[in-house]
Amino acid sequence: MNISSVVIMTKPEHIQEVLESLEESGLCDIHFHDEKGRIIVTIEGEDVYEETFKLKAIQEIPHVMSAEMSFSYSEEELQKAINEFERVQKEQEVPEILENENIRAEEIVYKGHIKAYID
């Protein structure tokens, strides 16, 4: 599931018409609008292709001057990041110096990187 926020711009005199069109379209959820013609909505899709389809449809609504994604959340991206983190965790063992309970912290001299103790 992907969720993105979209900033839509229209002329102030067309804001009600654009809001009604957005509401009727079922493409998005409206969260904010102001008297200057700015509208903030969110769109959801199973993937980026569905979101892109919805964004293009919003851009085609009469009197929409611009509609651009602002922020995006993607479960797929999150899962990739989690998988990469878990892979790195498995590959990197904790250095012996950090596991040795007989070494006092005061005795460790930091040299800019823990790898200096491993190599």
Rank of each mutant, 00 (worst) to 15 (best):
E75S: 10
V88T: 13
V48G: 04
P95S: 02
E20I: 00
V18R: 05
G45Q: 07
L55W: 12
N102H: 13
M69T: 13
I61Y: 00
K54F: 14
E13W: 00
K115A: 09
E35K: 05
E24C: 12
E107R: 11
I40A: 09
E46I: 03
S5V: 02
T42W: 13
Y110N: 14
I108M: 15
E91D: 15
K54W: 05
F85I: 15
S74A: 08
K56M: 07
E60L: 13
I108S: 15
F32Y: 12
K90C: 15
S70P: 04
I114Y: 05
I114S: 11
A105L: 13
L78K: 00
L78P: 09
R87W: 02
V7R: 12
A57E: 15
K90I: 12
K36G: 06
Y73D: 02
G37I: 11
S25N: 07
K36V: 03
E99V: 05
S21I: 00
K11A: 09
R38N: 14
K80E: 02
E76Q: 09
E60D: 15
E107I: 01
L27T: 01
R87A: 01
E106P: 01
I114K: 01
H33K: 06
I8Q: 05
P62N: 11
M69R: 14
E17Y: 11
E23Q: 09
I8F: 09
K36D: 10
R104F: 11
I108C: 11
I30L: 12
V109D: 06
H31T: 03
K36P: 02
S21A: 13
S21L: 00
